[in-house]
Amino acid sequence: PSSTLPPYFMKGSIIQLADGELKRVEDLRTEDFLQSAEVSRELKIDSSTVERIDSSKTPDAVIIQFSVGEHKAQVCVEVLVEYPFFVFGQGWSSCCPDRTTQLLALSCAKLSVGDVCISLTLKSLR
């Protein structure tokens, strides 16, 4: 398991939207994700609601349980506490915003139970 975050979460990283527009990671808005997914043939945005946040045996990690999509499928992910998720209408959020800001310089809100995160699924999945 990786103990570092991917480079694209670092403040200032250049992100290309589906229409070709370039934005910095910290400037992304909910609409950017929604519009990019609309253009995509394969991917669609799902709403994933945070149901539980539990500590993990892995140091500095948490286990987040999401309720995904209209069928409310239960999905668990283990991530580092500083891993940022994009919350609808709120923006980047992590379990430990101070650490995210310290490591990535990315401003974050606190990720809490009930938050609705942007996630992806395949359009063809039925």
Binding site: P6, I15, L17, A18, F85, L120
Partner: peptide, 19 residues
């Protein structure tokens, strides 16, 4: 300067299909 695609920022949370 590296450019990253938007979808790399979003977790892929695929539920296992049971039907």
């Amino acid at each position: 300067v590296p450019v990253f695609p938007w979808h790399s920022l979003v977790p892929f949370l695929a539920p296992t299909q049971s039907d």
